[in-house]
Every structure is written in structure tokens, then in C-alpha cells.
């Protein structure tokens, strides 16, 4: 098991280096001139050259790359050229908002997707199976921005039950961050009113973000369960008198969860990046919105930072999935 663990972690390290290279390349192939942006709209040629020297952009690329690496190693993501703020500080502010959204969306996806997948596998080709199939196909097919607008129209405008945007009402003072996740912080401080408010704000964007994730978890889990229930070991378990509940929930589901886990890992990273659309529709102050506004301004450092964070999330999610594979499947534990 230890060998397996070390191999996986080593592989993740290599991937991290590749990711850093990639973000660096992105910043250098972008068509905008960051020095011109930094110097301002009215700057002359000499001022632009001055800015270029200030930001080290006149150095050869290998040197720039080395400096980028050393800065990253010190936890320094660089400075936004447009605002002059540290990208690291910005990310620390915006990332928890996205993380909270993704965690809730993933929780919805797993907690509904897996049981519904099991249910439709057990009721294969029955009404429940058809209903979840229609639900899953629409979940994947509906464009999130359109679906988000529809929910806003229904729950905020018509029914007046939920707010349309933001993490909290504009009149509410955000609490001092502990974890940065409002739902967690409000519970930690025992502020249930704040918890209710945060929940009412997050629920619609979380639903919109989770729908494609929920749909794909449901479909994969269903087909894997159908497969697992047909396996010889399930026949044997029935013959030996194992209870039907235990056969479905342990003997078959454990096998079906392996491919489902892979989808969950991929969807985690996918949601981190696709949150852009949802954050825009719901004006959610996360890294998606941050990346979009920076990119529009031609401000490449924040985009690099966000790319790195999203990539890291992909990697960590897949590392965790790989480790869970090792826990679930004893055949993988052999070093």
C-alpha cells in the first residue's frame, strides 16, 4: 500500500511541474502586452519600457520561468498588473467562495446521484429508470446559464423565495473568515441566522452547478450497478443466502463505485473550471468571476493563478480518487 501511495504522489508531483509549465506558456502566448497595461493607457514608449523592466519582462524567457518557479515555491503568485494587488491574497479571498459552491454541488451530486443510480439499476427499464434517464439527459443537456436564469426567474422573481445573486445580502456584514466557507463559519460561530441567509444564497447556484455532475454520476453508477448485479459473484452471494440489501449495498455497490469514483474525481475538477458560467449568472464572488474579469482586462497574473488553482484541484481530486481506489480494491495494493 505504501509503494502504491508513493507512486501516486510522485506522479502527482510530475503533473504539478507540467501544470506550472503550462500556465507559464499561457501567459506568454497571450496576445496582450502586459507592460503596456501596467504603464497605463496614456503611457509613452519609454514608460512602457520602464514597466517592462519593473516586471522583469525584458529578461530572457528561461530566466523569467525560473523566477516564476522560485516565486511560486515561496507561495507568491505575483501581482495583478491592473490592480497592483497580490494575486495570492485575491485567490485567498475568492477561492473559498468557489470551494463552498463546488463542495455543496458535489455533495448534491453524490448524495443524489449514487442512490438514484442504484435505484434505476434495480428497477431497470421500469418507470423509475425511465424517469431518472430523462432527468439525467436533461441535466447534461441544459445549458447552465439558461437553467440558472430560469431558476432565478422562478424562485426569486415569481415566488420571491430566494435571492438572485451574491453570497449574502448586500446589507449583511460578512463575518470575519475562519475557513472562508460561510456555511461552516456561521455554524462555528453559532450564527444560525447567517447560516440560513448563506444557504438561501448558495442553493440555486449549487443546484445549477451540480446538475450535470449529478446526471453523469447517476448514469455511470446505474450502468455499473446493472453490470455488477449480473456478475457471477452476485449469483453466488444469492445462492449462499446473503441478504438482498447487503448484496446490493455492499457486494454490488462496492464494485460499481470504482468507476463512479473516477467520474466524481473528474467532475470535481470540471466544476472548479465550469463554475465561471454559474458565478457570472449568480454574481458569485469566486475564482471564476475573478478569472473572467482579469482575462477581459488582459491581466495575465490572476489568470495564471486561477489556472494553477483549478489544475491543482484536478490533481488533488484525482490523487484522492487513486488512493480511494487502493482502499477499495485490494488487488491494487500490491506494490
Amino acid at each position: 500500500m505504501l509503494g502504491y501511495l508513493l507512486r501516486r504522489i510522485g506522479l502527482a508531483g510530475l503533473m504539478l511541474f507540467g501544470l506550472v509549465c503550462l500556465t507559464f506558456v499561457i501567459s506568454n502566448v497571450a496576445p496582450s502586452d502586459p507592460a503596456a497595461l501596467a504603464a497605463g493607457p496614456d503611457a509613452g514608449r519609454s514608460q512602457i519600457e520602464q514597466a517592462r523592466r519593473d516586471y522583469g519582462l525584458d529578461k530572457p524567457l528561461p530566466e523569467q520561468f525560473l523566477r516564476y518557479l522560485t516565486d511560486l515555491a515561496h507561495g507568491d503568485f505575483g501581482r495583478s498588473i491592473a490592480t497592483g494587488r497580490s494575486v495570492g491574497t485575491d485567490l485567498a479571498r475568492y477561492f473559498p467562495a468557489t470551494l463552498e459552491l463546488v463542495i455543496l454541488a458535489m455533495a448534491l451530486g453524490v448524495l443524489l446521484g449514487v442512490p438514484l443510480g442504484v435505484l434505476s439499476a434495480l428497477r431497470k427499464d421500469g418507470p423509475a429508470d425511465h424517469a431518472t434517464r430523462i432527468f439525467a439527459v436533461s441535466g447534461i443537456a441544459l445549458p447552465p446559464f439558461w437553467f440558472g436564469l430560469l431558476l432565478q426567474l422562478a424562485f426569486a422573481t415569481w415566488l420571491g423565495l430566494l435571492p438572485t445573486s451574491g453570497r449574502l445580502s448586500v446589507f449583511t456584514e460578512p463575518p470575519p473568515p475562519i475557513t472562508g466557507l460561510l456555511l461552516v463559519d456561521s455554524l462555528l460561530t453559532g450564527n444560525f441566522g447567517l447560516f440560513r441567509e448563506a444557504l438561501s444564497h448558495i442553493i440555486l447556484p449549487a443546484i445549477v452547478l451540480s446538475l450535470p455532475c449529478l446526471a453523469s454520476i447517476l448514469r455511470v453508477n446505474r450502468s455499473e450497478m446493472v453490470e455488477a448485479l449480473r456478475m457471477d459473484y452476485v449469483t453466488a452471494a444469492r445462492a449462499h443466502g446473503v441478504t438482498p440489501w447487503r448484496i446490493v449495498m455492499v457486494h454490488a455497490l462496492k464494485n460499481a463505485m470504482l468507476p463512479t469514483l473516477a467520474i466524481i474525481g473528474l467532475r470535481w475538477g470540471w466544476m472548479m473550471s465550469s463554475t465561471v458560467l454559474v458565478e457570472t449568472v449568480f454574481d458569485w464572488p469566486g475564482i471564476g468571476l475573478y478569472a473572467v474579469s482579469s482575462a477581459i482586462a488582459g491581466d495575465f497574473k490572476p489568470v495564471m493563478g486561477v489556472t494553477l488553482i483549478v489544475g491543482l484541484n484536478f490533481m488533488i481530486a484525482n490523487l484522492i480518487v487513486d488512493l480511494l481506489y487502493g482502499v477499495l480494491d485490494p488487488r491494487l495494493r500490491r506494490a
Partner: peptide
């Protein structure tokens, strides 16, 4: 059963 490899659950002790 016929094939003991496939009639035992690979993931359970």
C-alpha cells in the same frame, strides 16, 4: 460453482 475466481467477490475479504 464452476469458476471460483468469478464467483467470489474480488473486493471483499
Amino acid at each position: 460453482f464452476q469458476d471460483p475466481a468469478s464467483y467470489l467477490n474480488p473486493l471483499l475479504a
